[in-house]
């Protein structure tokens, strides 16, 4: 049994959809409220480690997709969670994986996703005088001086 099959088995209870976009990768779509449970299952089985959290903004569909990448050797497992673009919010997984704190803070600052229960929600890496409520990685964020003139 490969690591990905094992992961699929672990997550079977919560998976809404399972895809294999490339060799060695597995995408599992889960509901936002199932995130902590799914992460706990992976952590209890010692399946890999959290490699990062990616946010994807899709204004057309009115969603912000949050991707939790777990890596084990050559394999990459991605938990995909779709959130509404209006007031997006998700539970923190820091109680399971403390190292997720930084990734969650990045997500909060860059996409305006409220991470509920994250241990340290303070201002992250943007400058001290950054305007509240402006999220640079959202698609509707306009750079003051665009590169292409």
């Amino acid at each position: 049994m490969t690591a990905l099959e094992q992961a699929q088995g672990l997550l079977a209870a919560w998976a809404q959809e399972t895809r294999t976009p490339e060799a060695g990768r597995l995408d599992v779509v889960i509901a936002p409220e199932k995130l902590v449970a799914a992460t706990t299952a992976l952590f209890d089985a010692r399946w890999g480690y959290l490699a990062g959290i990616t946010g994807l903004d899709a204004p057309k569909s009115g969603q912000i997709e949050v991707l939790y990448h777990f890596c084990a050797g050559a394999y990459v497992l991605t938990l995909r969670i779709a959130l509404a673009r209006e007031k997006p919010s998700i539970a923190s997984i820091c109680s399971v994986i403390p190292a997720a704190s930084m990734f969650e803070r990045e997500l909060a600052e860059m996409f305006g996703v409220a991470v509920v229960g994250t241990p340290d929600p303070s201002r992250l890496f943007l400058p001290d005088d950054w305007q509240d409520g402006v999220y640079p990685l959202r698609k509707d964020f306009a750079e003051e001086a665009s590169h292409a003139e």
Binding site: L126, P127, P136, F141, E143, E144, A145, S146, H147
Partner: peptide, 11 residues
């Protein structure tokens, strides 16, 4: 001198 490749980056 000019910002180089980072010209126009938001930060």
């Amino acid at each position: 001198i000019s910002g180089g490749v980072f010209q126009g980056c938001y930060n």
